[in-house]
């Protein structure tokens, strides 16, 4: 049996998708890695001193600098002649990656470091109490984009970081979801086997922040993919090379299962918003050829 490299006893909520992502990533990578984590839920729940859930070498520095710290780890291994010792992986939340750390990430990708950067995307700043990030999807109510009398929640679509990463011309960009664990493991294995900078974005539902029962973390993740709201694909040097095709379900099935979208079903004008979200899914389906 494979050793559990992300140990139990961590403080993640019961049903935490980010914890599942961490386990799957380490299943793919094996133990010869050095992990860099920015500040965020995964970092906080996994490293309450004097404890750590990580059975691989791990470092947390700050919120926005994981890609730069990982760059430093990589060049140090190179300089010290220890390159074969470990693959370097950064694992950060959407806030750390797509908002505050995007400069450091872009620098790391552009400079060509042999680092796999993985974003576990739970679509908001969970650690500080469910504030919106630029990865929060259209229509989601968060504590800083709350639905209200004159608001339907988040009024901007998700920032497309995989496309931005791909625009750096890097050898491998992929999206995945914890609902498809073998796909995650396969993509992590593939990413670390490729020399150069790689970017992976793993959809990781958060029961606490999105408002669903912890038993449904995987089901919700699956619905995001099946509705076309989180397309799963791989791309190499800017060209899409594989797409997970689905028999698409209407977005309502995904949205109605979560508290963060509840207002869309209850307030006047919600229908129009649901239509807009369906349009986003349809556009994804068209762009990636998602439909079976």
């Amino acid at each position: 049996m494979q050793e559990e490299l992300f140990a139990p006893g961590h403080r993640g909520c019961a049903g935490c998708g980010a914890a599942i992502a961490a386990r799957l990533i380490l299943k793919g990578s094996g133990k010869d890695v050095i992990i860099v984590s920015p500040t965020g839920c995964l970092e906080v729940v996994s490293s309450p001193y004097p404890e750590s859930a990580w059975k691989v070498p791990w470092i947390h520095s700050l919120f926005e600098n994981a890609a730069a710290v990982a760059s430093g780890v990589e060049v140090a291994l190179k300089s010290l002649g220890r390159k074969d010792e470990a693959k370097v992986i950064a694992i950060g939340g959407d806030g750390a990656t797509i908002d505050i750390g995007i400069g450091a990430l872009s620098g790391m990708l552009e400079r060509g470091h042999d680092v796999t950067y993985i974003c576990y995307d739970n679509e908001a700043y969970m650690n500080t109490g469910i504030q919106r990030s630029s990865s929060t999807p259209y229509g989601a109510s968060t504590t800083t984009s709350p639905a209200g009398k004159v608001s339907f929640g988040e009024n901007r679509p998700k920032k497309n970081l995989p496309a931005i990463a791909a625009a750096h011309g890097i050898p491998y960009v992929a999206t995945a979801s914890i609902a498809y664990p073998k796909d995650v493991i396969k993509k992590v294995k593939k990413a670390i086997s490729i020399e150069g900078p790689k970017y992976l974005q793993i959809h990781a539902p958060c029961c606490t922040g999105w408002g669903f029962d912890g038993s449904k973390t995987i089901e919700i993740g699956r619905l995001a993919v099946e509705t076309g709201l989180f397309p799963i694909y791989e791309s190499t040097e800017g060209k899409v090379t594989s797409v997970k095709k689905v028999k698409r379900k209407p977005v309502e099935e995904y949205l109605k299962a979560q508290r963060r979208f509840k207002h869309l079903f209850e307030s006047e004008g919600g229908e129009g918003e649901l239509k807009k979200i369906q349009d986003i899914a349809d556009a994804n389906a068209k762009q990636f050829g998602l439909d079976l």
Binding site: P8, G15, A19, I20, S215
Partner: peptide
């Protein structure tokens, strides 16, 4: 594979839960 705690292990050809860590999420 899905347990967020990694607390379900293979025993012979079946699986068993280590209740020391199971948080009861129900996944």
């Amino acid at each position: 594979m899905f347990c967020p705690e990694g607390t379900i292990c293979k025993v012979a050809d079946k699986y068993a839960i280590d209740y020391d860590y199971c948080k009861g999420c129900g996944i």
